[in-house]
């Protein structure tokens, strides 16, 4: 299927120049506490991408009928319902991951990316572009999460997805897992590093003031 250039922009923009996490600063809330291991980070990324995409589609379909006064509440209800479904499905099919994510599944509701995209995109666009926008933003959020999760698990526990990747020989030579990586502040420091690299490569995103 050939995508028009506009559709491409909708899908790929959020992955790079318009990234919701490191450029628009949305959705950091629930992101950081789940990245101490790679697996929950991936599940979280998929969950957010799906919820964003489907919430976008639903709101986009309803956009001509929603009374303006209760707009925010309607959006919240749609999102909360979708998140509850995701959480129920996780409980049924990925019990272990659901245990690790605990309250952070519920916190997808207040993930600013969702409300941001619903307000900024879905209310003014058709269902198909809205779906792509949701997937794009979800993935843009997801890759940051996965990168952070990758480094925290690799450096913090010496494993990836639970499999040992740091060879025993290295431990014998005196290498030790960095316990600091398992602590929450390191997640935010890693995001700062991603921002640094990203902005060093994209000069137009750099800010003038602190």
């Amino acid at each position: 299927m050939a995508l028009s250039s506009k559709t491409k922009a909708v899908l790929w923009g959020p992955l790079n120049k318009n990234n919701p996490v490191i450029v628009q600063v949305l959705g950091i809330c629930s992101a950081l506490a789940v990245t101490s291991k790679l697996e929950p980070a991936i599940v979280m990324a998929i969950a957010v991408a799906l919820v964003t995409a489907f919430a976008n589609v639903i709101i986009s379909l309803l956009r001509k009928s929603i009374p303006n006064r209760i707009r925010i509440i309607v959006q919240l209800v749609v999102v909360a319902a979708l998140v509850t479904i995701v959480s129920e499905v996780l409980k049924a099919f990925a019990y272990d991951v659901n245990k690790q994510l605990s309250v952070f599944v519920g916190l997808i509701v207040t993930n600013c990316i969702l409300m941001g995209r619903l307000e900024a995109f879905a209310l003014g666009n058709g269902p198909w572009p809205s779906f792509l926008d949701g997937i794009g933003n979800g993935l843009g959020y997801g890759w940051v999460l996965v990168v952070v999760g990758f480094f925290r698990e690799l450096l913090g526990s010496g494993t990836l997805l639970g499999y040992k990747v740091v060879p025993q020989a290295l431990y014998d030579a005196g290498y030790e897992n960095n316990g600091l990586m398992m602590l929450a502040p390191m997640a935010i420091l890693l995001v700062a590093c991603i921002i640094w690299v990203h902005r060093a490569n994209n000069k137009e995103l750099q800010e003038e003031t602190n």
């Binding site: 390191m186 935010i188 921002i195 902005r199 800010e207 003031t209």
Partner: peptide
């Protein structure tokens, strides 16, 4: 203060938050 250009604004705020958290 002089902050490296790519870190200005958002980047340095993140780093400060992390340090405060520690």
């Amino acid at each position: 203060s002089h902050v490296p250009k790519p870190l200005k604004g958002l980047g340095i705020t993140f780093i400060i938050t992390a340090l405060m958290a520690i």
